[in-house]
């Protein structure tokens, strides 16, 4: 219990310290910023509370797109890794193709998806799906294949089928890597969803709101949306960590 409290108290304390320094203008002083360039926390908080309803609606739009896309992308990525494990000779090429997808810049990807899909939501899901594949396939491939020495040989001596080896040995072994990938993907997914909204043919979502307000110099409004996005990201990340703790209690990283 004490551990859990510390997990919350330390970051919270640090955050409060930073917020205080920010509020009293220390950050502005060392970086040479003016309050209108970087609004102080209270200004952001007031703006947010005045605009909470719309901010939450936008948040739901962005996060739901990000999560659906992340689910699709992670699933595809995992399947590619699994195929690459079963057919190492042929499957590994798929991993390279996926990593090439990762190198398509988001601006270009968003525009391509704009052509393929006409609604903002489907465009967003398309973009997020593509960017989430690589991290999952690479991590999962590593987990499926870096087994303890002789474990596969041992399975072979008891005449286990490839499928049994996969479900009994490889699958549990790759869980920690899958969670690492999910942790990377949740951040990537939200970021990609927001960037795709910069160009989407809709006027909802955190990304659109951030771009629109920052361009107009409504910095407090822009930052209030950034706060919402960050909170959503941290909460989702926290959820993944909680699931991870319960799913892989046996792993060294959890001890």
């Amino acid at each position: 219990m004490k551990e859990k409290m510390l997990n919350i108290i330390w970051p919270l304390g640090f955050g409060i310290a930073i917020l205080l320094l920010w509020q009293v203008g220390f950050l502005h002083m060392i970086f040479g910023l003016k309050p209108y360039q970087l609004p102080v926390p209270t200004a952001i908080a007031i703006t947010l509370s005045n605009n909470l309803g719309k901010a939450l609606t936008d948040c739901v739009v962005t996060i739901s797109g990000a999560l659906i896309g992340m689910a699709f992308g992670s699933l595809i990525g995992f399947m590619i890794a699994a195929i690459a494990t079963f057919f190492p000779k042929w499957g590994y090429g798929g991993m390279i193709v996926v990593s090439a997808f990762n190198a398509i810049p988001l601006v270009a990807l968003s525009s391509i998806m704009n052509l393929w899909f006409s609604t903002g939501m489907s465009q967003k899901i398309g973009v997020v799906t593509v960017v989430c594949m690589a991290a999952m396939s690479m991590n999962a491939y590593k987990g499926l294949n870096s087994l303890k020495p002789f474990s596969v040989d041992l399975m072979h001596t008891v005449a286990a089928s490839e499928w049994t080896i996969f479900t009994k040995l490889r699958l549990p072994n790759c869980l920690p890597n899958v969670f690492t990938a999910l942790k990377i993907n949740i951040a990537t997914a939200i970021m990609a969803a927001m960037i795709s909204e910069y160009f989407a043919s809709s006027t909802s979502g955190l990304g659109f709101a951030i771009k629109d307000s920052l361009r107009k110099g409504e910095m407090a409004m822009g930052w209030s949306y950034i706060v919402v996005a960050s909170l959503a990201g941290v909460i989702l990340y926290g959820i993944i960590i909680l699931v991870e703790r319960n799913a892989i209690k046996w792993h060294a990283s959890q001890k």
Partner: peptide
Amino acid sequence: KTVERIGLPYLIISQMIPILALAPIIFNI
């Protein structure tokens, strides 16, 4: 462990801040 406790949430937050918001501040610095 303490730094990890402090750091991890902020690493996530750092990825949520779009470049559009960050660029002017970095240019300023």
